[in-house]
């Protein structure tokens, strides 16, 4: 413990703090280095007191089926969950906004995960990490003493993760319910219909899309109103010409709908971050209902 260097950012339970850790920590630019005594650190880290499952992903977001599975296992085993989002290329320069987007996406995804865990009464924390997967697992297993096993999200090679792990490592794969075949990672995202993976996009990109779709909409309007007589002549002919107004409004709804959506996003008016949480809360409530225990029991009849 005395050799700990670097940092881990714990974001669980709505507050963040910094801890020192072993090995070569990749220091992100948000880091404030400070040295803490091991006893203090353990006092802060509630996960150190109880056995836990370490879930590791190399993405900024975990897919809902993976979250559900982990929470379900933790619930059955009465364990806590520590989700670790690992930034595997922290020094790769991608215009400067990459780290902020990564952190923002993690915070959103972590909040959704926390809500799922809370619905099942499972304690949960998540950390943002950087470096090689094997090193991160090794580091966390030393700091958080009672890691029972490690679960790997899709996209991580189990050989790499297991090479430095002191505890068993399992990987999660999504399989097709009908064929039983493994679904590739990029397709696994489509499993939960109706809920798109959380995406963090910048206001700058919304601004440019607003300009693009706004121009497209303006061209559409100009085309219709500058040729109003010609258009009205054919659009009101009826019969098969009925398809003309319908097709026109479909084209308009695409261009103008995208424009208006990006317009509000560019102004910073977007859906609440808790929007998806409200829905998961409703779904989880149902799963809380206990199934009747129909197992046969021994009876001692006098």
């Amino acid at each position: 413990m005395e050799r700990m260097l670097g940092e881990i950012k714990m974001i669980g339970q709505g507050k963040s703090w910094l801890m020192e850790k072993t090995m070569h920590g990749k220091v992100t630019r948000r880091t404030v280095l400070q040295r803490t005594e091991p006893s203090d650190m353990l006092q802060h880290c509630s996960l150190a007191k109880r056995s836990c499952i370490l879930l590791v992903t190399a993405n900024s977001q975990l897919e809902p089926p993976v979250m559900d599975y982990t929470v379900s296992v933790a619930d059955r085993m009465n364990c806590k969950v520590l989700a670790t989002y690992v930034h595997t290329q922290p020094l790769f320069w991608q215009g400067g906004t990459q780290q902020d987007l990564f952190t923002a996406a993690i915070e959103q995804n972590g909040a959704a995960f926390k809500e799922k865990a809370a619905a099942r009464g499972v304690e949960f924390e998540f950390v943002e990490e950087s470096g090689r997967i094997s090193q991160v697992i090794s580091r966390l297993c030393r700091i958080v003493k009672r890691v029972e096993f490690v679960l790997l999200d899709q996209g991580i090679k189990i050989e790499e993760a297991a090479s430095a792990s002191p505890v068993p490592v399992f990987n999660i794969v999504c399989t097709d319910a009908r064929t039983g075949r493994m679904i590739p990672h990029h397709q696994a995202k489509k499993i939960l219909k109706g809920e798109k993976p959380m995406k963090v996009t910048s206001r700058k990109s919304h601004f440019w899309q607003t300009i693009l779709f706004g121009a497209m909409t303006a061209v559409f309007y100009a085309a219709v109103f500058s040729n109003a007589d010609f258009i009205m002549k054919y659009f009101t002919k009826g019969g098969l010409f009925a398809l003309l107004p319908v097709a026109t409004v479909f084209a308009f709804s695409y261009a103008h709908g995208s424009f208006t959506s990006n317009f509000w996003s560019a102004l910073g008016i977007e859906g609440s971050k808790g929007a998806t949480l409200k829905q998961t809360r409703t779904v989880e409530k149902r799963s809380e209902e206990k199934r009747p225990d129909t197992r046969p029991r021994l009876r001692a009849d006098a």
Partner: peptide, 22 residues
């Protein structure tokens, strides 16, 4: 539209405001 009753100009003008609103 089969009976040629749709005034596309009115439709597009309302749509112009309503898509912002929706």
């Amino acid at each position: 539209a089969f009976y040629g009753m749709v005034d596309i100009r009115l439709t597009l003008l309302i749509l112009g405001g309503s898509l912002f609103g929706v």
